[in-house]
C-alpha cells in the first residue's frame, strides 16, 4: 500500500471518528430543539450532561482532518477552500455559534428565558452545521469542482447549490441525529427517558433510510463517477451489504431494547457508509481532477506526517480512553437497570 493511501486512510479514519463522536454531539443539539412532552426539561439536561465534558475533544477530529489534508495534499485543500468558499464560511459560522452558545448557556443565568435563548441558538446551529458539512462533502464528490489557472470553472455556487450536495447534507444531519438518539439511550438509567430516545432513534433511523435512497438516486446525475464507483468491485458490494445488515441490526436492536447492540450497529453503519463513499471515490480527493497521488506532498513530508500521526495516536488514545471512562461510566449502570 502506498504512503499516500495510508495517509488518506488515516484522514478518512479521523473523519469517521468525527462523525461518530463529534457528529453525535451535533445530533444532541438536534434533540435539544425537538425536546417536547412532559420530560422535555430532563431530555435537555441529559443531552447537556452527555456532551459537556467531551464535545471540545470530539471537535478536534475535524481539525485533524483539515491538518492532514493541507499537510499531505496541499493543492486539494487549496482547491476545496477556493471553490467551496461560501458553504465552508457558513459551516464555520455554524461551528462558532454551536460551540459558543452551548458554553454560554452553561455559564449564563439559570433563568428559563435566558436558557431558552441560548438553547435555540445552540440547537439551530447544531442542525445547520451538519447540513453544511454534508453539502461540502457532497460537492467534493460531485465532480463539478474544477480550477484551471486560478479560475473556478463552475463558479462559486454551482458545485454546491445543487440537489445532490443538499441531499448529502440532510443525510448527514439524519445520521448524526440517529447516532445521538441511539447513544442517549445508554446515557440514562431512567426508563422513560430511554423510551423517549428509543422512539427518536427509530424515527430518525427511518429518515436515514429515506435520505440514503434519495442520495443514491440523485447521485446518478449529481455525482455519476462516485455512483459508478459504488458498484465497481465485488468487495464494494460486500461493503454495502454489510452496511445494510448493520442498518437492519440497529433497528432490530432498538426494537428489542438492546441498546448496547444498537449502539454498535449504528456506529458500524455510519462507519461503513463513510468508507463506502471513500472507496467509491478512491483515488480521487476532489472529483474529477485531483487524486491523492497528484496532490500528494513530497515523500519526506508524508513520512514525517505519518510518524507524527503514529506518535500522536499513541499519546492521544490513552487520554481519550481515560476521558470516556471517567464520563461514560454510566453505561454499565444503564444496562443493569434494564
Amino acid at each position: 500500500m502506498s504512503l499516500e493511501t495510508i495517509i488518506a486512510g488515516v484522514m478518512i479514519a479521523s473523519l469517521v471518528l468525527y462523525a461518530l463522536l463529534g457528529g453525535a454531539d451535533y445530533g444532541g443539539g438536534v434533540w435539544d430543539l425537538f425536546a417536547f412532552g412532559p420530560r422535555a426539561r430532563r431530555q435537555r439536561a441529559l443531552i447537556a450532561e452527555a456532551i459537556s465534558p467531551v464535545w471540545e475533544a470530539n471537535h478536534v477530529w475535524l481539525i485533524l482532518v483539515i491538518v492532514i489534508l493541507f499537510t499531505a495534499f496541499p493543492p486539494a485543500f487549496a482547491t476545496i477552500a477556493t471553490a467551496l468558499h461560501i458553504p465552508i464560511t457558513l459551516l464555520l459560522i455554524g461551528i462558532v455559534l454551536r460551540g459558543t452558545a452551548f458554553t454560554f448557556r452553561t455559564y449564563d443565568v439559570q433563568r428559563d428565558d435566558v436558557q431558552r435563548r441560548w438553547s435555540l441558538v445552540f440547537s439551530i446551529a447544531s442542525i445547520i452545521t451538519p447540513v453544511l458539512l454534508g453539502i461540502t462533502l457532497g460537492a467534493i464528490a460531485s465532480g463539478t469542482i474544477r480550477i484551471v489557472d486560478r479560475v473556478v470553472v463552475n463558479g462559486f455556487f454551482r458545485s454546491w447549490l445543487a440537489p445532490f450536495p443538499f441531499a448529502v447534507g440532510f443525510f448527514a444531519l439524519a445520521l448524526f441525529a440517529f447516532l445521538a438518539a441511539v447513544y442517549l439511550t445508554l446515557e440514562t438509567r431512567e426508563r422513560e427517558l430511554q423510551e423517549d430516545f428509543r422512539r427518536r432513534a427509530l424515527v430518525s433511523g427511518v429518515a436515514v433510510g429515506i435520505l440514503a435512497l434519495t442520495v443514491f438516486v440523485l447521485a446518478g446525475t449529481g455525482a455519476p463517477t462516485v455512483r459508478a464507483g459504488i458498484s465497481r468491485t465485488w468487495w464494494a458490494l460486500i461493503l454495502h451489504v454489510c452496511t445494510a445488515v448493520f442498518a437492519v441490526g440497529a433497528f432490530y436492536a432498538l426494537w428489542m431494547r438492546q441498546y448496547k447492540l444498537a449502539r454498535i450497529c449504528a456506529a458500524a453503519q455510519v462507519t461503513l457508509i463513510l468508507l463506502g463513499w471513500a472507496f467509491a471515490q478512491f483515488p480521487h480527493l476532489v472529483e474529477p481532477d485531483i487524486t491523492i497521488f497528484s496532490a500528494a506532498a513530497p515523500r519526506i513530508t508524508l513520512q514525517l506526517l505519518l510518524g507524527a500521526l503514529v506518535l500522536g495516536a499513541l499519546l492521544l488514545f490513552p487520554s481519550y480512553y481515560y476521558l470516556f471512562r471517567v464520563f461514560k461510566r454510566g453505561h454499565k449502570e444503564a444496562q443493569e437497570a434494564q
Binding site: V60, A72, A297, T301, L304, A308, G312, L316, S319, Y320
Partner: peptide, 20 residues
C-alpha cells in the same frame, strides 16, 4: 502545507490533549 504542515499536525495533537 507540505513544508510547514508538521507543526500544525503536532499542534493538532496538543490541542487534542488540551481539550481532553
Amino acid at each position: 502545507g507540505s513544508i510547514i504542515g508538521m507543526p500544525f499536525s503536532l499542534e493538532g495533537f496538543a490541542f487534542f490533549t488540551e481539550a481532553i
